[in-house]
Amino acid sequence: MPALSLRLFDAASDPEAARYRILAGLSETRSAFRSNRISPWLGDLVGLHRGLSALVAGADSVEGRAGAVVDVDWEAGRLVRSGPEAPLAVGLARWALPHVEAAIGEGRALYEFAAERAALRAVGLVPAYRDEGFLLVRDADAMRVLRYQVSPLSGPDGRYRALRTSRLDARLDPLASPAAWKAALAEAAPDLAAPAAFRLEAEVDLPVEATLVPVAKRKLLGLVGTWGEA
């Protein structure tokens, strides 16, 4: 369970205690950022901010039309209105949003720091079929290998692409040649005859799972946007 989630607001019954728990969660998240760890803390914060913003916007809209919001029906995803005052969750959301936004700013600054000091480069020639392939990230004396798949999806905002990854149990020597890497990858995944592969090259030592892997995925998604339709 993340340090901060909408459950903290849903279950709140005492405003002072709830604020203490929220600040404690933010402190834990900031501690992760100070340790150069991005994931899952930044993603959790962004999701929390989206939920709180929707709650506050909905409460503002309802109160402007039909009186104060008095409760939140979390299961139905709606606000219960008409009454003298807003529920505790709405008040907490209004109080928490600036704190969450400040923490998101710290997380994004860390991401930008890491992204500016890392580059995603092709390993060997890039084949015509690139919607499946491999991401390579240096991990101590070995290479972390992730198999990726890009899938087109449709949503309310239009068409976009989703990236899925899975860990591949293949040990690559970081000092080997790109040709040796590609040969080992083709052997580990024979269903991809000539796989696309991209390596993240980082200038600084950062946590692999919590920071370098998320940066590599985000950079690959940016690269995917230049490929055209699948």
Rank of each mutant, 00 (worst) to 15 (best):
V224H: 02
R50A: 15
V150P: 00
G105L: 05
R199W: 13
V137A: 01
A57I: 03
G25S: 07
Q149P: 00
A162K: 12
P87I: 03
R218Q: 15
L221I: 05
F113H: 14
V126C: 11
A176F: 09
R21N: 06
R50F: 08
L48V: 04
Y20H: 13
P207I: 05
D60T: 07
L200H: 02
A17W: 10
S82Q: 15
V224F: 13
A109K: 12
G67E: 08
H49E: 15
A162Q: 13
T211S: 06
A142L: 11
V100C: 06
L153Y: 05
A102E: 15
L42A: 01
A183H: 14
A114R: 02
A197Q: 07
A12V: 11
A93S: 14
D205N: 12
L97S: 00
V126E: 15
R34S: 12
D60W: 05
L97G: 01
G51V: 00
A114H: 06
R34D: 15
A162V: 12
E63Q: 05
V145F: 12
V213G: 02
G91F: 10
V215F: 09
M143R: 02
V145T: 06
A54N: 09
E187V: 13
D14Y: 14
D191M: 09
V150Y: 00
G64P: 04
A194P: 00
E229A: 13
L192G: 00
G228T: 02
I104P: 09
L79H: 02
H49C: 11
L79W: 06
R21T: 11
P214C: 11
R78C: 13
A140P: 00
G107S: 08
V208C: 12
D131E: 15
P207H: 03
A118V: 07
L146Y: 04
Y20E: 15
V69Q: 05
L4Y: 06
P98Y: 04
E75G: 05
P15I: 07
V90C: 09
D73R: 08
G155W: 12
D71K: 08
L110I: 01
A96S: 12
Y148W: 13
P195E: 02
W41Q: 15
T165A: 12
A176I: 06
